[in-house]
């Protein structure tokens, strides 16, 4: 069963702030959904290979040929904060 600490740990991994009330709610809701999901634990799946791709193709590669890039103006058009020709963020070293 999923508990408060687990919810907080997962929220940190997912970079999601949750209020105390949201944490409580998440404990209940995730627990409820996981209870249903856990029914797959009962299946005998020994020797069954996993399916990552339903498509059975390999080597869908591209040639090493350049394509046009965006202009800096286009690249930065949607950025919430811009400085010095780049995307500005709070420093990770602060």
């Amino acid at each position: 069963m999923i508990d408060r600490d687990t919810v907080l740990h997962v929220a940190r991994l997912a970079r999601l702030e949750l209020t105390d009330g949201e944490v409580e709610r998440m404990v209940g809701e995730l627990g409820g959904v996981l209870e249903h999901i856990e029914t797959i634990a009962q299946l005998d799946l020994d020797g069954v290979p996993p399916t990552t791709h339903v498509v059975e193709v390999a080597n869908a590669l591209r040639e090493d040929e350049p394509r046009a890039s965006l202009s800096r103006q286009q690249a930065l058009a949607g950025a919430p904060a811009v400085a010095d020709e780049g995307f500005a963020v709070p420093s990770p070293q602060a």
Binding site: A81, A83, D84, G86, V89, P90, S91, Q93
Partner: peptide, 21 residues
């Protein structure tokens, strides 16, 4: 590439970095 502006690039009291993709 992440360029740390350090104290010179402070906004709202926190230091800024710039990303060049």
């Amino acid at each position: 590439k992440l360029i740390h502006l350090g104290a010179s690039g402070r906004i709202h009291g926190s230091e800024q970095s710039i990303v060049d993709f």
